[in-house]
Nucleic acid binder design. Sequence first.
DNA 1: GACAAAACTGGAACGTGTTGCTGATTATGC
DNA 2: GCATAATCAGCAACACGTTCCAGTTTTGTC
Lengths: 203, 203
Amino acid sequence: MTSTNVSASDELGSSAQRERRKRILDATYELAKSGGFDAVQMRAVAEQADVALGTLYRYFPSKIHLLVSALGRQFDEAAVRLHDREIPGDTPAERVLYVLKRMARGMQGDPKLTEALTRAFMFADSSVANEIHVVGMAMTSIVTHAMHGGVPAEDAVTDEDIAIARVIGDVWLSALVAWVTGRSTAAETASHMETAVHLILRD
Amino acid sequence: MTSTNVSASDELGSSAQRERRKRILDATYELAKSGGFDAVQMRAVAEQADVALGTLYRYFPSKIHLLVSALGRQFDEAAVRLHDREIPGDTPAERVLYVLKRMARGMQGDPKLTEALTRAFMFADSSVANEIHVVGMAMTSIVTHAMHGGVPAEDAVTDEDIAIARVIGDVWLSALVAWVTGRSTAAETASHMETAVHLILRD
DNA sequence: GACAAAACTGGAACGTGTTGCTGATTATGC
DNA sequence: GCATAATCAGCAACACGTTCCAGTTTTGTC
């Protein structure tokens, strides 16, 4: 008997299970990318992933879990991509703004996808805590990495650095929500982030 | 003919309309208070407000509008209550933390209500921009008022003050979401806010 | 007070997230 | 290779947000 809990983040499962899981997340990604939160309909995901509705629910117990898992995959990939790079900029503030803007550009290139994932993140409750934690850690890691200027050792990260990264992550999240929900433009969001980062990371 | 737009925030309307609107918001408040977001069901609100479902939708075009309007009323009242008071504390950081903690106590006393209102706020899109703006202004006003220490003139509020207030509001919102969704405890939330405020408002 | 316009009621109906069920299929242990 | 348990497909059904409609009541105007 293989593991019964397929939805937890790092279970192994059989190769068929991994394959199905990937197909489901890919379908979620495609649907979210083209139509946003509303287009990620469980029946549509199931169909596109070539999986029955019941199976979809076996792998992801709710639409929110599904979307947040997809978001986690995205963030993980982004964190990995950024982790091996030298971050340009002379001060922590500049470097943090650099990565934030990079991420913002990426998200603005796929507004529907971003909307879907952000909405899900905001709507998640404690049953999604694991998946959320993945996202939070990736965000914190991205920001602290940028503060420290790139490849150098990670063990120099202090508690205060983490606190700062969390605060910046919070502001970023609020700004993202405002942008995603059409309450502020991309330019306003960028300007707001700039203000916030300079406020928090005074050089 | 009276104004046709009943749902905008400051229309007058007939006294019967005001009365209905109040009954609806009261019903929303009661249901949210006892059962949270899920308990605020449109049919239930309509019934408790003694109004037909169609009428409810005439006043508030969606559940989100309804809840965000209720949140706006809450924040307005809080802002008014705080506005005539002297805020204790020797530094801006202390005073801001004082009001934030006061608000947090109020919200923790009604967790279901807070959950409902916060969820709605996070889920709102641009069609709710007006109602959202009311909440944002109230929040900013509360924080800048605290920074300036209470009753003294409001015209001393600078652009930087407002930027600071907005950033604090963002962090507050993210922390609130984390608490509401059960991802962090009240104590963690309080501690996180304390860190953030001291980081932003260095004396 | 009569009439027209607007608002309200009661309820049906639709879409989508979610659940439950039944029979087919697949993987596992012997 | 087979028995058996787990998994899956297909589908019906339910809940709640939302829309729509026909008939009634209220409101505003002359």
